[in-house]
């Protein structure tokens, strides 16, 4: 059954979109990832214009993060103060990012930048996942040594220090602000929540305790993704509500089964599988960038 998407201006199969939402939802439930980094390239593969794919996916990130953050808030695993500082950075970054998006679109380079960002991101992410999964599979029984809470680098010498009680940190406010801004730009250009970059950054750069990292990152992702959705809708008119709704419906159901299945399956092997999937997606995008195009001339976006 075909459905016409009013903003993307093409018609796609309803069940394909529901299925896509369900599969990505399942994976995100299974691995505890947002899934945006897979959904956006897949939408582009099935013909959705990249700007519409990115903006619509940002809206879906809001939905997939809210349920996670509610659970973490109940358990008190959110450092609100840190979240707000990250968020201020995130709002600045995403606002700048959406303007950058518009600029790139006007000069005809947006598709290249989206694709290139995805190749870099999926490539490194896929390698990391496969590597980590492989390592865990091999050394499953070996106990992990306690890592140092955090190392002191020049980053910790920055001025304007602030105390974050929940995270037991006393660091310069510029650190979370900068990280938040960086993720904000990423979120605007790629339509991802950015949790997979934010979480390691919070652990390794800020030195936050792992217990509050996920909740806090989800907390700020909601607001940044909402900001991206709003600005994309206002500046670029690229949020397709019908597409978002179909993906959401599938995603909601898929995510439930995903997180239920997660407890019964060998996580490490699946992590390798996801890593390979991510690598394949990135590889396909890279191939499109380096192979000789069928026609050197392409239509630009309609002004």
């Amino acid at each position: 059954m075909q459905i016409y998407l009013p903003i993307a201006e093409l018609s796609l199969d309803v069940f394909l979109l529901l299925g896509l939402g369900a599969v990505i939802g399942f994976l995100s439930g299974l691995f505890g990832v947002g899934g945006g980094f897979l959904m956006t390239p897949l939408l582009i593969f099935i013909g959705v214009p990249p700007p519409v794919a990115v903006a619509t996916q940002a809206n879906n990130v809001v939905a997939s993060s809210i349920s996670g953050v509610l659970a973490h808030l109940r358990r008190g695993n959110v450092d609100i103060k840190m979240g707000v500082v990250l968020l201020v950075g995130g709002l600045i970054g995403s606002t700048a990012g959406v303007s950058l998006f518009k600029l790139l679109r006007d000069i005809g380079q947006i598709n290249l930048v989206i694709n290139l960002s995805y190749v870099l991101l999926l490539g490194s992410l896929g390698l990391l996942m496969t590597w980590e999964g492989g390592k865990a599979l091999v050394y499953r029984r070996r106990q992990r040594g306690r890592a140092k809470l955090h190392r002191h680098t020049w980053l910790h010498g920055l001025p304007l220090k602030m105390r974050f009680r929940r995270s037991r940190l006393y660091i310069s406010v510029f650190l979370p602000l900068g990280i938040g801004a960086g993720i904000g730009v990423l979120s605007a250009i790629m339509g991802v929540g950015g949790g997979f970059v934010l979480v390691p950054a919070m652990i390794y750069i800020l030195g936050m305790p792992t217990s509050v990292v996920i909740g806090t990152s989800l907390f700020q992702i909601i607001f940044v993704a909402a900001n991206v959705t709003f600005l994309q809708a206002v500046q670029n008119q690229t949020v397709d509500i019908v597409l978002a709704l179909l993906l959401l419906l599938g995603g909601v159901v898929g995510a439930q089964y995903g997180s239920r299945t997660a407890t019964h399956l060998p996580g490490d092997a699946l992590r390798i599988l996801l890593g390979v999937l991510v690598l394949l997606t990135g590889g396909r995008l890279l191939y499109d960038l380096v192979s000789v195009p069928a026609d050197l001339y392409v239509l630009g976006p309609t002004p």
Partner: peptide, 8 residues
């Protein structure tokens, strides 16, 4: 934009 966010 606000409606889209609310739906999400």
């Amino acid at each position: 934009g606000l409606v889209a966010i609310t739906i999400a």
